[in-house]
Amino acid sequence: MSRSETTQIRSERRDAAENRQRILNAAIKLFEQNGVEQVSMNQIASEAQVGPGTLYRRYRNKGELCLDLLKDNVDQLFNDIETYLEQNHSAPSSQRLKGVLSLFIRFRERKAQLLMGVEDSSSINPLRSRMQSPLFNELHQLFVELIDEMSISAQTHFNSTFRADILLMALSRDSYSFQRDVRGYSPEIILEQLCALFIGIK
C-alpha cells in the first residue's frame, strides 16, 4: 500500500470517528432537551451537521444509537454482574438470579431514557429488535444458565428459555413502567414480586 493510500485511510478513519462523536454529542443534547421519544433521526443528523446517509450508515435506527451511548454503562453492568456472581458462586442459583435481577433493575432505573430508546427503536418489529439486542441477548443467556441450575438443584424440569423470555418481557420498558408508574410499585417491590413469581423466593 502506498503512503498516499495509507494517509487517505487514516483520514477516513479520523473523519468517521469525528462524525460518530458529533452524532453522539448531538443525540445527548437533543435527548436531554426533549426526551428520547420526541427526537427523530433527521433531527439528530441536522444537529450533528451530517447527512442522513452518514447517520444511517453508522446507526440503522435510534435504538442502535442509544445502545452506543449506553455502551460503557452496559459494559460496567456486566462487569458488576460478573463480580457479583464470582463473589457469590457458592450461593443457591435462585439467590444469584435474584442478585442479577437486582443489579439490572438498578441499571434500568438509572438509564431509563436511553433504555427506552434501545427498546423502542424504529424497527418494523420493535419486540424482535428489542429481544435481539446485545444487552437483552446477554441477559437472556445469563437467565437461562441460572434457571437451568435451579432446575437441576430442584430435580425438576423448567423450560429455561421460556422462563427467561417472559422474565425479560416483565423487565421491558412497557411492563416495568406500568408497574412502576401506574401501579405505583417501588423497584424493591417489583424485584420481590418477580422473584416470588419466577424464582419462588422473596
Rank of each mutant, 00 (worst) to 15 (best):
S2P: 00
I190M: 08
M116Q: 12
D120L: 03
S123K: 05
Y185K: 14
L24F: 06
K111W: 11
A17D: 09
E145V: 03
N88W: 02
S151A: 10
T54P: 03
P92S: 11
R60Q: 01
L69C: 09
Y59D: 07
V74S: 09
R180Q: 06
Q43M: 14
T6P: 00
L197Q: 12
E47F: 08
E192N: 13
R14K: 14
R173C: 07
L97F: 03
D72Y: 08
N19H: 11
R183K: 15
Q113H: 06
R180H: 10
E47W: 03
Y176T: 05
V36G: 08
Q95F: 00
Q38E: 01
F158P: 01
R180N: 07
R106W: 04
R163T: 02
I81G: 06
Q87T: 11
R130N: 05
S11K: 15
Q87S: 12
E64I: 01
I23N: 12
R10C: 04
E145P: 03
N137R: 12
L24S: 11
N137F: 07
R10H: 12
L167P: 04
Q132Y: 08
L142D: 06
E149F: 07
I44L: 10
L146I: 07
L191V: 00
E192F: 03
L30A: 05
A112H: 13
Q33A: 14
A170R: 12
Y176A: 07
E138V: 01
L139V: 10
E149Q: 15
R13M: 03
E109C: 07
R130E: 08
I81M: 12
E12F: 10
S153A: 11
P187H: 15
S2F: 05
M131W: 05
K98V: 02
L30T: 05
S4L: 02
R128F: 08
V50S: 14
Y84E: 03
A26M: 08
E5G: 02
D15S: 12
I201A: 11
T156Q: 14
K98F: 05
R110F: 00
M131F: 11
N19G: 01
Q33G: 01
K111A: 09
K29E: 13
G99M: 13
V100R: 06
N42M: 04
R10A: 12
M41Q: 09
G99Y: 05
A164I: 06
V144I: 15
T156E: 15
A112S: 13
E64G: 01
R3S: 09
A112W: 10
R128C: 00
R96A: 01
Q21Y: 08
L67G: 02
L139D: 09
E138W: 06
P134L: 11
I23M: 14
N42G: 05
I44A: 10
V182G: 00
Q38Y: 02
Q179F: 10
F104S: 03
S151C: 03
G63C: 10
I199V: 14
K111H: 15
R180F: 06
G35P: 02
G51I: 02
I152V: 14
R110V: 04
R22S: 14
R110N: 09
I124F: 13
F162V: 09
D15V: 05
E64Q: 15
V74Y: 01
P92Q: 07
L114G: 06
